[in-house]
Each structure stands twice: as structure tokens, then as C-alpha cells.
Design a protein around this nucleic acid. Structure first.
Length: 823
DNA sequence: ATACCGACCTTTTTT
DNA sequence: AGGTCGGTAT
């Protein structure tokens, strides 16, 4: 959900119930089937297409106009997916097939929902206000749940807990069980619950093995206790926002039936990212009795499924035609974003995956000036950052906007080096998806105050701020109160009111607690009468919270006060405090200022859906990308997901894509010698250039890299000495065949890298194939060698061009032979 | 209550 | 290596 305040008040009936009777000629006829007027309109559309349909290509147009029945749109990167979705909605509305409130449109992120709302607004002309059911799975889940909360034992003003609250709650439960919270970390259990909920499993459904694996076999009880505790707190976690509606739909057939009637058209974005729970939710809504049409349209790209580790099931998209017999499948393969080199490189890479639905992107927008994808090598990550910085400055001198450039990394620790470098250069950058505004300490504290005012049963909020700022309510008092409240099964705030009537507490604590209770009583009363921003300020003042930071002399304090002001400011856009709280719990983002011209730095994951003129992809090394852990834990499918991530990365680029790898990277504090990513070997020579050293960092003498005796002696070598590089050079002339555009079926022979050593051959026309055969090592076991970073050592074994060396100082390392020379 | 020290972890991230 | 968190010691 976005900042629309038409969603509040929650428990009011939806306005869409009012215009039941068709009022205009275009109104939908009841009970399926099109009314005559609607059909007439549709017919008219055939002959004279409305504006919004012009400019669509035939496939897009088909996807927009195939309104009735299940449709799967396989939309490759940059093929106009969002355009299809939004135009489709506009089309449904314009042809009068449904009211805005009868369309259910689901996205994964708030960003996507926001964008869709905007774009529909442009098409339809502002009437989007009336699309109450366009939003994320979670925001729609909240909406459903507010209406039917009592059916799952909640009140409709329930609170939504975030990850932090959940962990604190679980920790309490673990301690209450008398378990060692050290041995059984709450964080880990929260992760398990999340995984279970992603799969749609309630405590009774979880596998015995899972249940046993945690807390001496108490996993299941703990999960059940957690759910019970949520209920008593009148609270939900994120997973519940999906699971509770599923539960309601299953148990109350008449309610589900209502929604079947209500949602005439359903659209789902990024279908490849749905997890099992979301899938169940969708199926319940979309699979209807025979007499109700299944007008569901899912849009996705199996090649961009990168959230498997988070429970997404690519199978959902692969299975669509089975789930919805007679479904129409439409492929969008015409790309409007990238040059043919970029598409060629990406397409050839992704063709190495099996189990694809198979799409090949093409473009007609080619020019001889198009730059190929360029692969660069650097000695280490520092040099990588330096060189990328130089390229960016060069582009900047040629009048390119920083806003059109992005650095996409595999793991966030890679960002730091770039930030450091850009700070030195004075180059503007922005980190996308960094630490979130609403996760900051002071914001969470303030929010806890507001939450408790709105929802006095929110014990987590109570415990968070009861002694913040310090009021002399220490652990003992809280413990007493906690036990007292739990024994009576009342919320802590209510329990506190009773407790101060007794003499269980010391007078000092009693007085302090009394004051707290009085304050909250006062604020709660003001809630109905005072404007919420004013009340918020008052709360922070009267509680002493702002004073606490004013008196704090630490360096962060002024910033925190500034953030609090910002928090109040952002409340202004909302109608009520409750509405604001809900927004924050669902939308953890705070919008960034887009005004500044700056290079974006972000992870590959958060880059999905975005595009840039120029994209830099650093860190293409084995172990980092593909990430070792993805390989260890995910096996073959883990590797394929990494490859999709690489595909996503390349396809973000419109005109220029520069890939980097380094020979040495510091991981967990120690320098490791690294090997170029296997993905580099999977790029097609026809669309990829290998950068010449002089152009990118010539004259930069770094202790011999690029100038060693070894290099000069090597017939292949320019200044690049990595084998991957040499192989690239060597193959450049051989690989005359352009394999770009081949379907995935052309894979010839593949031997997994992970299990059985170096692969021998992959796909025709690749940069590189046979590392073992083509570059026999010039070293032998026992040779005394020198490595620039690790010093002297002895070769202990050789595998192709990879040497295992016992270094005198650095210990045993595996190193590519290009990096050592005979000592 | 605060300060200091040691243990631990370190892919990706939404909601 | 480095940052964070949690526990202990003052």
C-alpha cells in the first residue's frame, strides 16, 4: 500500500458495495458474461483502437486484450512488462468491464505498486484513487484481515510487528521455556518461523524433523506459543498477513465466494517470485467455481527469479498452465531497453540454465556504434574501485549524468570500497537499499510511543519505552510488572494500573509508573481530538524523549533529533496516527531525494526492475559471484539462481555494461587470491570485449602486476596475466561464430564445475572452454615460486592452471599460475 | 548505570 | 579485520 489515505478508516465498508447496480451503459453485467453494452464497446475497440493501445507491439497488445480467462505473460527483461500490466488495467476500465474496485492487482514491492498507480493514473486520468485493491500481497492482506480479524481471534486494530519486535518476543518465549537463549538464538527461530510461514505451515503442519531441530525438540510448542502470544498482543507478523486470510478463505466458503464475485479481474506482477503461501492465497482467490470466470493474469520472467533463498518457488510460474487449464501463454521477447550486445551477452549466459521456459530477447535498435560488453581485470578491489571511479569521471566529462550510472554488487560489503573511493574523489553517489529510516533506534522508540497510544495492548512497545528515557524503572520493576500482567492475562499497561494500587512496588518505582500511566491515559484521550502530528510532538516532548537526545552529547544526537523531526513531517501526509503506523509497518522505505545527480550503488537484488545507461558489475570472481554459499547450500539450483542474478545484472544496462573481476580480494579480513567467475567464461565472444590494460589504468604501476617477467615471456600476454583473460584473448580469434540468439536447447555438453573439477566444454562460441587443455601449466610440483602478495612458496600440486602452493608465510593457498613466477 | 572487553559472525532482502 | 552484541565488572 502506498500513501493513500482512502484506506483509512479500516473498518468502514468499502464504497464499492454501493454501485451494485450498473449505472452506466458500460457497467459490468452481473454473473459473468459481458453485457450488451460492454460487448458493443469491445467491438468498437476492434475497429478503432483507443489511444492507449497504439504503440503496443502485437504481443503486448494481445496480452492487454486477452482479458477473459487465465493468461500468463512471460515478459523478458525490458520488454514492457509494466506497460502491459497498466495498459491492461486501463483497458478493463475503459471498456467498462469492471469498476476499479473490482480489480485485484498484486505486486511484491511498494515501489512497484506505486509505479503502477502512477502509470495507470496517467492512462486513465486520475481515477486510480478508486483502485483500492492495487498493492503488495501484504498490504492487501492487511486490508482483508482488518475486515475479518475477529474470525482469527484478532481485533481489527491489530498491530503489525516487524522483524525486531518478533525477535524480542521470541527471545522472551525461549526464556520463559527455561531454555538457554544463547544456545537457541531467537533470531534463528524467527528465521525458521518465517520459512514455515512462507510455506504456509501452521504449528501443526511443520515437519517433525523441523520441530525437533530446535530447542530440544520444542520447536513446535514454541511456534504454537508464539502464535498464542501474538493473539494476546492483538498482533500479527508479516507472514500472518498472508496466512490469516488463507485460513479465513478456507474456513469460510461464503466469504471466499464473496471475493470471487468481487474481484472480476486479477493481475499478479513478478509471478516468479511468489512463495508457497502467496501461491495458496492466489489460488484460493483465482480458482473459482465453474460458473465464475477465472480472469487471472500473471506476469513474470523465470529468468529473473532470484529470491529462491527467501522461499520463492520458480515452479509456480512453470506450473501455471497446469493450474489453469486452457491458459493463454504470451511471450514478450522484443526488448526496448538494451543494445544487441548487451542482450547477446545476457542471453548467452542465461542459456546455460536448464529448466527454463525459454525466451530469447531481441531488439531492432542496433547501431554500429554500440559498445560491446567489456570485461576488465584489476589487481585487487581497491584498484577495481579506483578504475571504475575513473571510468565514471570519464563518462561525466563526456556529459553523461551520474543518475544514468549504477554499480551493482553481489554482496553489500563490496559497496564500501566504492564509497570510500567516491568520497575521496568527491563523486556523488547514493546507496540504494541501505539502512532504513524506520529501523533507526530513535524512530523505533518514537514509534513505540505512538503504537502504545493507539493500541494499549502492545506490550512490546510498552517494554521498549517504559524506561526510555530513564525513569528509574529498572529490570526488577519490569519483571514484577511482567509477571503480574501475565498472571492476570492483561496487557502490561493495564496491569500497571492495577499494580500501583498494591504495595508490591517500592514507592519510587510506583510513582514513576504512575506518571507513565497518567501520560498514556492523557495521550489516548487526545488521540480523538488533537491533530495527530501535534499529538506526536506533544508525546515526544512530554515523555522527555526529545530532551533525552538534547542532553546527549554524543555525535549522533543532533542527527537523531533531525530524524525525529523528519518523522513528524512525514506524518503530515496521513490522516491519522493509526494510518501512519500502518504505513510504516508495511512500507519500511523512506523515499530518497532523486534531485541530486549521483551514481547509484546497490546490490544486484535491489536492482531488479531498474535500468541504467551504464552499469558496472564488479566482483565477478568464483566464491563471490557465484557466491560460495549459494553453491554450497543450493547446489545446482543455487548456481542457476546466481546465474539469473548475473543475467539480471547485465540486462539492467541500456547502452554500456562493464564487468570487473579482481585477482585478490580481502574476505573476512584476509587477502585471498581469487579466480575469475565461471560466468565470464559463459559470455559470448561476439558481444564481449576484453579491455586493454592501457586504456583503463595504464601507467598505474602496482608492484609488477601487468609488467612481470612472466608476462613478457608469455606469448598470449598483453598485460593481463589471468588465465581467464588469456583464454579470452586466445579465443577471440577462434570464436567467429556468433551464437547469440540461440535457444537454450543448444547447450552441448556440460560437466558440473562443483563436483567434478574443471569443465571441459560448454556451449559453442564461448569465450573460453578448455582451461586444462589449452593452457598447460609451465610449473611442476616442487617448484619454488614467488607470488606478489604471498611471497615465496613451493608448488605442492597442480590442476590445470591452478596451483596449490605452500607459502612460507601465508600457508597453503590455491592460486592461478598466472600470478606466480619461478623464484 | 556505565564502561569495557570478548565472542561471534560475515549473501542476497520484502513485507 | 571489523563491527556488533551481550555479558560482566566496577
Amino acid at each position: 500500500m502506498t500513501n493513500s489515505f482512502d484506506d483509512i478508516p479500516f473498518f468502514d465498508e468499502e464504497p464499492e458495495h454501493a454501485p451494485r447496480k450498473p449505472t452506466a451503459a458500460a457497467a459490468p453485467a452481473a454473473g459473468g458474461g459481458l453485457g450488451i453494452a460492454a460487448r458493443a464497446m469491445a467491438a468498437r475497440d476492434q475497429s478503432r483502437a483507443p489511444d492507449y493501445l497504439s504503440g503496443l507491439n502485437p504481443e503486448q497488445r494481445e496480452a492487454v486484450e486477452s482479458i477473459e480467462g487465465p493468461v500468463l505473460v512471460l515478459a523478458g527483461a525490458g520488454t514492457g512488462k509494466t506497460r502491459v500490466l497498466t495498459t491492461r488495467i486501463a483497458h478493463i476500465l475503459a471498456t467498462g468491464r469492471a469498476f476499479p474496485s473490482q480489480i485485484l492487482a498484486v505486486t511484491f514491492t511498494n515501489k512497484a505498486a506505486r509505479e503502477m498507480k502512477e502509470r495507470i493514473g496517467v492512462l486513465v486520468g486520475g481515477a486510480v484513487e478508486g483502485m483500492p485493491w492495487l498493492g503488495t500481497f501484504h498490504s492487501i492482506g492487511v486490508k482483508l484481515l482488518r475486515r475479518h480479524a475477529e474470525l482469527v481471534g484478532l481485533r481489527s486494530d491489530f498491530t503489525i510487528l516487524d522483524t525486531d519486535d518478533v525477535i524480542r518476543l521470541i527471545k522472551q518465549l525461549i526464556q520463559a521455556e527455561g531454555l538457554d537463549d544463547k544456545r537457541w538464538p531467537a533470531r534463528q527461530f524467527a528465521g525458521m518461523i518465517d520459512t514455515w510461514k512462507n510455506k504456509g505451515l501452521t504449528p501443526k503442519d511443520i515437519p517433525e524433523g523441523d520441530a525437533r531441530a530446535f530447542a530440544n525438540g520444542k520447536g513446535r510448542e514454541l511456534y504454537a506459543a508464539y502464535q498464542a502470544r501474538l493473539k494476546s498482543l492483538n498482533a500479527c507478523d508479516f507472514g500472518d498477513l498472508l496466512l490469516h486470510p488463507i485460513d479465513i478463505f478456507r474456513r469460510y466458503g461464503d466469504i471466499l465466494k464473496d471475493y470471487h464475485q468481487k474481484f472480476r479481474y486479477m493481475l499478479v506482477d513478478e509471478y516468479q517470485d511468489t512463495n508457497t503461501a502467496q501461491y495458496m492465497w492466489l489460488r484460493l482467490l483465482a480458482q473459482r467455481p465453474k460458473d465464475v470466470p477465472q480472469n487471472v493474469c500473471c506476469v513474470g520472467d523465470d529468468d529473473q527469479s532470484i529470491y529462491g533463498w527467501r522461499g520463492a518457488e520458480v515452479d509456480n510460474i512453470l506450473r501455471f498452465e497446469k493450474d489453469f487449464p486452457g491458459a493463454k501463454v504470451i511471450r514478450l521477447e522484443r526488448n526496448y531497453r538494451s543494445t544487441e550486445h548487451i542482450l547477446g551477452a545476457a542471453g548467452h549466459l542465461i542459456a546455460h540454465n536448464e529448466g527454463r521456459l525459454g525466451k530469447t530477447l531481441f531488439t531492432e535498435r542496433t547501431s554500429p556504434d554500440d559498445e560491446k560488453v567489456i570485461v576488465h581485470a584489476a589487481w585487487d578491489s581497491e584498484e577495481e574501485a579506483r578504475a571504475v571511479g575513473e571510468e565514471i569521471e570519464q563518462l561525466q566529462r563526456n556529459k553523461h549524468n551520474l543518475n544514468d550510472m549504477a554499480i551493482l554488487v553481489r554482496a553489500s560489503f563490496q559497496m564500501r570500497e566504492f564509497e570510500d573511493r567516491f568520497v575521496t574523489l568527491g563523486l556523488n553517489y547514493r546507496v540504494v537499499g541501505g539502512p532504513r529510516f524506520y529501523e533507526r533506534l530513535e524512530i523505533r522508540d518514537a514509534m513505540a510511543y505512538f503504537r502504545l497510544v493507539c493500541q494499549p495492548a502492545d506490550d512490546l512497545a510498552f517494554e521498549r519505552i517504559v524506561n526510555t528515557p530513564k525513569r528509574g524503572l529498572g529490570d526488577t520493576t519490569i519483571r514484577t510488572l511482567h509477571d503480574y500482567a501475565r498472571a492476570r492475562d492483561v496487557p502490561m499497561l493495564a496491569g500497571a494500573a492495577d499494580l500501583i494500587e498494591t504495595d508490591e512496588l517500592k514507592p519510587k518505582a510506583r510513582k514513576a509508573l504512575f506518571d507513565v500511566i497518567q501520560s498514556f491515559k492523557r495521550w489516548s484521550e487526545l488521540l480523538e481530538t488533537t491533530p495527530h502530528t501535534e499529538l506526536a510532538e506533544q508525546i515526544l516532548e512530554e515523555s522527555g524523549y526529545t530532551d533525552m537526545w538534547k542532553n546527549d552529547k554524543s555525535a549522533e544526537a543532533p542527527g537523531r533529533l533531525e530524524n525525529l523531526k523528519e518523522l513528524i513531517r512525514s506524518m503530515e501526509a496521513f490522516e491519522s496516527m493509526r494510518g501512519f503506523l500502518e504505513h510504516v509497518s508495511l512500507v519500511m522505505d523512506a523515499e530518497q531525494n532523486e534531485d541530486m545527480d549521483a551514481v547509484s550503488i546497490m546490490t544486484l537484488h535491489s536492482a531488479k526492475g531498474l535500468e541504467f545507461e551504464t552499469v558496472f558489475l564488479p566482483g565477478w570472481e568464483e566464491g563471490l559471484f557465484p557466491h560460495q554459499r549459494a553453491l554450497d547450500e543450493g547446489g545446482r539450483s543455487g548456481l542457476e539462481e546466481e546465474r539469473r542474478l548475473a543475467y539480471v545484472g547485465i540486462t539492467r544496462a541500456k547502452r554500456r555494461c562493464h564487468i570487473w573481476f579482481v585477482s585478490n580480494r580481502r574476505i573476512h579480513g584476509l587477502w585471498q587470491s581469487t579466480m575469475p567467475s565461471r560466468f565470464l567464461d559463459e559470455l559470448p565472444a561476439a558481444h564481449v570485449d576484453v579491455a586493454e590494460s592501457e586504456s583503463s589504468y595504464g601507467g598505474y604501476g602496482r608492484g609488477g602486476y601487468g609488467q612481470s617477467r612472466f608476462d613478457r615471456a608469455d606469448p598470449f600476454a598483453n598485460s593481463y596475466s589471468t588465465p581467464g583473460w588469456k583464454r579470452a584473448q586466445a579465443n577471440k580469434t577462434d570464436a567467429t561464430r556468433d551464437n547469440w540468439g540461440s535457444r537454450s536447447g543448444h547447450a552441448v555438453e556440460r560437466i558440473g564445475y562443483g563436483e567434478s573439477g574443471p569443465r571441459t566444454k560448454t556451449i559453442d562460441g564461448e569465450l573460453v572452454a578448455k582451461s586444462v587443455a589449452s593452457t598447460p601449466s609451465k610449473f611442476s610440483v616442487g617448484d619454488r615460486v614467488f607470488h606478489i602478495k604471498f611471497g615465496n612458496g613451493n608448488v605442492s600440486s597442480i590442476e590445470g592452471n591452478k596451483l596449490t602452493i605452500d607459502f612460507d608465510k601465508a600457508g597453503q593457498k590455491r592460486v592461478l599460475d598466472g600470478f606466480v613466477e619461478k623464484a
